[in-house]
Simulated assay, not measured.
Amino acid sequence: MLRTIARGVLAGLLAAAGLAHLFWLRRGFRIAVPPWATRLLHTDEDMIVVASGAAELVLSAGLVALPRERRRAGMAVAALFVAVFPGNVHHWATGVSAPGLRTDRARLLRLFLQPMLVAWALWATAPERSR
């Protein structure tokens, strides 16, 4: 029961973040994209923000709509959280304000939140134990 609630909340947060990446906070999220990422992926900051938003929406839907693939969806969500971590480090290191992260303290706390998000995704999608 608790995992089901945690999964639903996680799916909701991913959906909200995905929509924010695609629409109302898209411009602000470009700040967190490290310059090396655009060179590595041969694209621009906007495309990376759009792709991450789309990934968040797809993974959110997968958590809810694909119960038989729940574990794989959880691993994919955890992998996304790991993949965006370098952007969070870049954002903290540069000290540039972005939506919701206007202070050095907020940007630093975001770094510590990321491992908790990874753990949440893995725990919420782990198989239920029989009693």
Rank of each mutant, 00 (worst) to 15 (best):
V84F: 04
R26S: 12
R70E: 03
M116Y: 05
F85R: 02
E45V: 02
S52E: 06
V82F: 02
L22V: 05
G12P: 04
L117C: 13
R27A: 08
A6S: 04
I48K: 03
A124H: 11
L111H: 06
R39T: 14
W120P: 08
P34S: 13
D44T: 14
E69F: 05
V118E: 01
S97I: 09
L57D: 03
A51L: 03
R26W: 06
P127G: 13
A11R: 08
L13D: 08
A11L: 01
D44S: 10
L80I: 06
D46N: 12
A106W: 12
V96W: 03
W24S: 14
F85L: 10
G87M: 08
S52Q: 14
A106S: 12
G28Y: 00
L22C: 09
L111T: 06
A124L: 02
G87D: 03
D46Q: 11
L108K: 08
G62P: 01
L101E: 06
G28V: 04
V9G: 03
V58F: 04
W36F: 10
L57R: 00
L108I: 11
A73R: 08
L19H: 14
W123C: 04
A126P: 07
G100P: 00
L40H: 03
F23I: 11
V9Q: 02
R3P: 00
T38S: 09
A79L: 10
M116H: 10
A51C: 15
R70W: 01
V96Y: 07
L25M: 14
W123P: 01
V89I: 11
L13E: 12
L101C: 05
D44C: 07
A124Q: 09
P35H: 05
R71H: 14
R68S: 15
E69H: 05
V96G: 07
Q114E: 08
L59M: 02
T103E: 13
I5P: 04
V9W: 02
V118F: 10
L66R: 15
A93H: 13
A76P: 00
R3E: 13
G8W: 00
D44H: 12
R3Q: 09
A61V: 03
L14T: 05
R107G: 00
T103H: 11
I31F: 15
L22S: 05
W36M: 03
A83Q: 00
R72S: 15
A61P: 00
Q114W: 04
A20S: 09
T94C: 12
L111D: 12
L10Y: 04
A51W: 09
L2I: 05
T43F: 08
R105T: 15
G8E: 04
